[in-house]
Amino acid sequence: MKDKTIDYVLRTTWLAVTKMYNEEAAKFESTMATGFALLSIDPEKGTPSTSLGPKMGMEATSLSRTLKMMEERGLIIRKPNPEDGRGVLIFLTDFGKEKRAYSREKVLTFNDTIKNSISKEKLDNFYEVAEVINNMISNKNIYTQKEHSLK
């Protein structure tokens, strides 16, 4: 693995995780995106549709398609937001809550399996490195640093 770039390892690992979740979801005629949406919606209070995209890291158009499909399948319902007349709250139906529990179980199984296979120290290092990468990206410290050093 020493010759591989960091972004290559991140990308191929995420693609493998996505494939694994999609294969599991396909057994129940679903997708990873649907499972992720189910887990991102507050099962009691609902969730404003505008906060779902950022929460899931999805673009509005992809999220709209996912929510439309979820509504057609009877997983969610949309209701006007009583606190914001222009907004919409997304609520899980009973069927959606059932599928959410299934998605949650799959995510916890994945996490538990990884945690049982890797030492706490290595896992802590992984989280620390991921946090540093995320902070550097969100603070725009990747390419701006290089640009500054070129001047």
Rank of each mutant, 00 (worst) to 15 (best):
R78I: 05
R78T: 11
K79R: 01
K79T: 05
P80L: 12
P80H: 12
P80D: 10
P80G: 07
N81Q: 06
N81D: 15
N81I: 02
P82G: 03
E83G: 12
E83D: 06
E83P: 01
D84Y: 09
G85S: 15
R86V: 03
G87W: 01
G87H: 05
V88P: 05
V88H: 10
L89G: 03
L89R: 07
L89C: 11
I90P: 00
F91R: 07
F91G: 02
F91Y: 10
L92D: 02
L92S: 10
L92P: 06
T93A: 10
T93Q: 09
D94W: 14
F95G: 11
G96C: 08
G96L: 11
K97R: 15
K97I: 09
E98L: 14
K99S: 10
K99V: 07
K99E: 15
K99N: 09
K99G: 06
K99L: 14
K99H: 11
R100Q: 13
R100N: 12
R100H: 09
R100G: 00
A101M: 13
Y102G: 12
Y102Q: 14
Y102R: 13
S103T: 15
S103N: 07
S103D: 06
S103E: 08
S103L: 04
S103H: 05
R104E: 15
R104T: 13
R104D: 13
E105A: 14
E105P: 04
K106C: 14
V107C: 05
V107M: 04
V107R: 10
L108H: 06
L108P: 04
T109C: 05
T109H: 11
T109Q: 09
F110D: 03
N111D: 08
D112M: 12
T113G: 03
T113W: 13
I114E: 06
K115Q: 12
K115I: 08
K115P: 03
K115C: 04
N116Y: 02
N116F: 04
S117Q: 12
S117E: 04
I118Q: 07
I118P: 03
I118F: 07
S119Q: 08
K120I: 10
K120S: 08
K120H: 06
E121P: 01
E121L: 08
K122W: 06
K122Y: 12
K122P: 03
L123V: 06
L123G: 02
L123Q: 05
L123S: 05
N125F: 01
F126D: 00
F126M: 09
F126P: 03
F126K: 01
F126N: 00
Y127P: 05
E128A: 09
E128S: 07
E128W: 10
V129Y: 11
V129K: 12
V132T: 12
V132A: 13
I133P: 01
N134Q: 04
N134G: 05
N134P: 01
N134Y: 13
N134K: 08
N134S: 07
N135S: 02
N135Q: 00
